[in-house]
Design a protein around this nucleic acid. Structure first.
Lengths: 164, 164
DNA sequence: TGATGGTAATTAGCCCGGCTAAGGAGTAGC
DNA sequence: GCTACTCCTTAGCCGGGCTAATTACCATCA
């Protein structure tokens, strides 16, 4: 099919590309463009796999955050997910409606609320995490060890890069 | 699945930092989980940068596709973006309304439509691409050459992994 | 040639989840 | 105890997924 090779983006034929603002002598310029495309494309594919279960991407992300970090306030969750508080309120409400989280009063501050995973929520995270990784897992299995090592290193780098 | 996910820190009160950083055991199983998390997280950050301009992620993706591949029918675009035709109809309509693409009759088949970039659309792609990469670019600049090489290799691998 | 079935695009209408603006409820400082 | 601030929530907009149904066109075959 559209077997365009990744190396650069010469955009083939009639489409004078190469603009992208990347000075050609500057490797990170190209890299940013290439990496962004690859990441967004892969993420889109990963996200499209989610349709098999009933947990949306935003919802799962919150659940996973609670799973790792423990109870959090909506404000903290909004901050962590880089969304506005009203959006988080809505997501939390959906999760609560589904029985995956519970809202409790904050012990010290009456304005705040603590959101915590229910037992159902905890196992939902664990099951979903495995299932969602299946597609990627299956594809990674086709790579050789070096390639997998590269991706593992990249995953670590991305974590650092994205770190606030 | 692989039984125990090694990343589960007991959410209780502990705040596992080392959680999810662990390379060990079943390499591809862990890798899939780790990579998925890193990719989705990074993609979310990248996407959140878009808010500065008036081009949504889905819209930009279509524009970029047309920029690289030339005129396409809505059906082909839907296929390429892994969305259903009605979704693409809507996206194309928005792009047309903004003047970035034009719809023309298909030369051979009256059922089909050809979507093509306008001049404005073409420069929108080029400008936006550079701007959107700026955030990532700035962060990549803090890495060393080896790390950048790793990410470049990973970008290539991801393209291949996601192919088809 | 005219009915029949398939295919492309669209419309209608649902839902999720971003956002802003505005409104309680609770806290804190004076 | 008033005032200001903080946190959460509600109300309501919008983009963009989806399915189901509709319309327009093509292709085939009796």
């Amino acid at each position: 099919m559209t077997g365009a090779t990744p190396t650069t983006s010469p955009a083939g034929a009639a489409h004078g590309d190469a603009a992208t603002g990347a000075p050609s002598g500057d490797p990170t310029g190209d890299l940013a463009v290439e990496l962004r495309i690859a990441l967004l494309r892969t993420a889109r594919r990963l996200r499209s796999q989610k349709s098999v279960d009933d947990l949306s991407d935003a919802q799962f992300s919150v659940l996973a955050h609670l799973h790792v970090h423990g109870p959090r306030t909506p404000g903290e969750l909004a901050d962590a997910e880089h969304v506005r508080p009203p959006s988080m309120t809505r997501t939390v409400a959906a999760l609560e409606g589904a029985g995956w989280v519970r809202r409790t009063d904050h012990p010290d501050d009456g304005r705040q609320v603590l959101v915590l995973l229910t037992a159902a929520g905890r196992s939902a995270v664990e099951e979903t995490r495995a299932r969602r990784s299946a597609w990627l897992h299956e594809r990674l299995a086709r790579l050789d060890d070096d390639e997998r090592a590269t991706l593992a290193a990249a995953a670590r780098l991305l974590r650092a890069v994205v770190q606030e």
